[in-house]
Write a protein that binds this DNA or RNA. Structure first.
Length: 288
DNA sequence: AACCAGGGAAGAT
DNA sequence: ATCTTCCATGGT
């Protein structure tokens, strides 16, 4: 067992991270204790990492704990990367002073990109959630994880690509996946197992390269690819104009009586560059 | 009961 | 290239 205290030199609203993570009913978030237990597979070993906030948005401090002392540095590196504790959110908030999002960034300072714990999880979850309301989306996700994933000491480890590649469309139909969605999930997993899709390799490429690579895969469109860039990789400058939540938030922001058009979204997002992902996060947050 | 949901593919123009 | 239709199922 080891434990490390970490102090940040930026604003950072970790309670919002916990809130977002808790959208997933299978996530092990303790809101009162301000902590989360995170599953991490490293070199085929399963680790559980406990992260607890002990500071404030203005002065963020955390305690990170886990078991395996021999992996301490690697695990800390993963956590700092996952929660983006080296990003300067103060600078990013300042970028929005004087823009059309100034008031929202005033209400919600230090909103981080809340990244998914794992690249494969992020992609498959996004495919499963396509076109579904959040409630049913998580019902499907949970059935999927409970049937094909693994629970260790109360923490769920997401199904592996190998496991998912071996299941059949009918198996997922039983969980109330549509046939099409079942194909997308299984076939994408097969691509990964066969080495035709390497998410860790993709990570090194530019946003544009990743988008064009992912969109070639059946079942992955622009919305899914952009979501993966944001929530899988934490890329800073994406504005998912196709997302219904974003459209609603902009409609509310501008007091419109209809959804904004693509052109209008393009127009108002210009001044957010190069931090459009943070603008998107804050917009989503404004309607949650 | 009708329309929507943090879409995408395939077909039609 | 851009617009429509279909897919599939629960939520409101």
């Amino acid at each position: 067992m080891w434990e490390e205290e970490i102090k940040l030199n930026t604003i950072y609203d970790f309670d919002y991270s916990l809130y977002r993570i808790s959208f997933d009913p299978l996530a092990t978030v303790q809101i009162e204790e301000r902590s989360v237990s995170i599953p991490l597979v490293m070199a085929n070993e399963k680790h559980i990492i406990h992260v607890q906030a002990i500071g404030t948005t203005k002065q963020p401090r955390f305690i990170v704990k886990s078991e395996d002392i021999s992996r301490k540095e690697e695990i800390l590196h993963y956590i700092v990367d996952l929660f983006e504790w080296k990003k300067d959110l103060t600078k990013i908030r300042n970028h929005f002073i004087g823009t059309n999002l100034a008031s929202l960034f005033d209400v919600y300072p230090g909103t981080p990109i809340v990244r998914d714990f794992d690249l494969y999880y992020s992609l498959i979850k996004t495919i499963i959630h396509q076109q579904l309301n959040m409630k049913f989306a998580y019902v499907l996700s949970n059935r999927f994880v409970e049937r094909y994933g693994e629970n260790v000491d109360g923490v769920w480890f997401y199904p592996t690509p190998e496991r998912v590649a071996s299941i059949k469309v009918e198996d997922l139909r039983e969980l109330q996946f549509s046939g099409r969605k079942a194909e997308y999930v299984i076939d994408t997993s097969k691509l990964i197992v066969e080495g035709k899709l390497d998410l860790d390799e993709l990570k090194e490429k530019t946003d544009e390269e990743i988008l064009s690579d992912l969109i070639k895969i059946r079942g992955i469109g622009r919305w899914t690819a952009e979501n993966w860039l944001m929530f899988g990789l934490g890329r800073e400058d994406h504005f998912p104009k196709a997302d219904i939540g974003i459209q609603k938030a902009v409609k509310k922001l501008l007091g419109m009586d209809r959804k904004p058009t693509k052109e209008e979204l393009e127009e108002i997002s210009q001044e957010w560059n190069p931090y459009r992902s943070y603008a998107s996060l804050t917009l989503w947050r404004s309607i949650e």
